[in-house]
């Protein structure tokens, strides 16, 4: 089931060669290790470019975003449940 959220989160990410690779994030005091970035895309709201990712810890799918205007990461949605990647 997909749960829609809009929570600020702390993320560990690698910024390299113009690409962002989220590696882990903190959610409910738990460190979620990102095993795979499933999809990435970019959205624009005015001058704010928002990078969006769907990522997985091999258990659930998470949608996270990074705003280049506010330098803030958000957890947008979780699709919980078992997943075999």
């Amino acid at each position: 089931m997909i749960i829609t959220l809009d929570e600020k989160i702390s993320v560990g990410a690698i910024f390299e060669g113009g690409r962002i690779k989220p590696v882990w994030f903190l959610y409910k005091h738990m460190k979620v290790i990102i095993k795979q970035v499933c999809y990435r895309w970019k959205e624009r709201e005015g001058e704010n470019i928002i990078y969006k990712f769907t990522v997985t810890d091999n258990k659930s799918i998470y949608e996270i975003s990074y705003s280049t205007m506010t330098y803030q990461w958000y957890l947008l949605a979780i699709d919980e449940g078992s997943l075999q990647c």
Partner: peptide, 9 residues
């Protein structure tokens, strides 16, 4: 297809 690709589930 884009939805399938972005959510492996």
């Amino acid at each position: 297809s884009v939805e399938e690709a972005s959510n492996p589930k």
